[in-house]
């Protein structure tokens, strides 16, 4: 992951890149159905998370894993659809976010693991 981030820096660097292919200005004369879809998707993912938590009857580990997966999916959707993460210096921005989440996982999982001494009953 780390290598990918830095490699991506090397692949596209320095030059001003705006996503000309996306023809951004043109789309803004019509109603933004993409955003509505995104909104509906967020609601669906949230409701799904609620179902997994309260109604699914899965085991604890499975519930946690599924909920986290759904959260990451929704976060990814927001980043791409709402926050336009791929525009402008898209490669750098995406790599930056990937790296940030990667670091976040290290900090959370690492801390929980390091601090779990003596707590072997769960």
């Amino acid at each position: 992951m780390v290598v990918y981030f830095y490699a991506s820096l090397l692949i596209r660097d320095g030059v001003v890149t705006v996503n000309e292919k996306e023809n951004i200005q043109e789309n803004h004369d019509r109603f933004p159905w993409k955003l509505v879809i995104g909104f509906v998707l967020s609601i669906v993912l949230t409701l799904l998370t609620l179902w997994v938590a309260f109604r699914s009857g899965f085991q604890d580990k499975m519930v946690l894993s599924l909920m986290l997966l759904l959260a990451f999916l929704q976060a990814g959707m927001q980043l791409v659809l709402f926050m336009h993460v791929r525009e402008g210096e898209g490669t750098v921005q995406v790599s930056n976010m990937v790296h940030a989440f990667f670091t976040a996982i290290i900090i959370v999982a690492g801390s929980v693991w390091v601090m779990s001494f003596g707590m072997h009953n769960h």
Binding site: N96, H99, A100, T103, A104, I107, G110, S111
Partner: peptide, 17 residues
């Protein structure tokens, strides 16, 4: 965007705690 990356780490520390 870089600042938001830092904020992700900030909140992750709070989550870890």
């Amino acid at each position: 965007w870089v600042f938001l990356g830092a904020e992700v780490v900030l909140f992750s520390t709070l989550f870890a705690t």
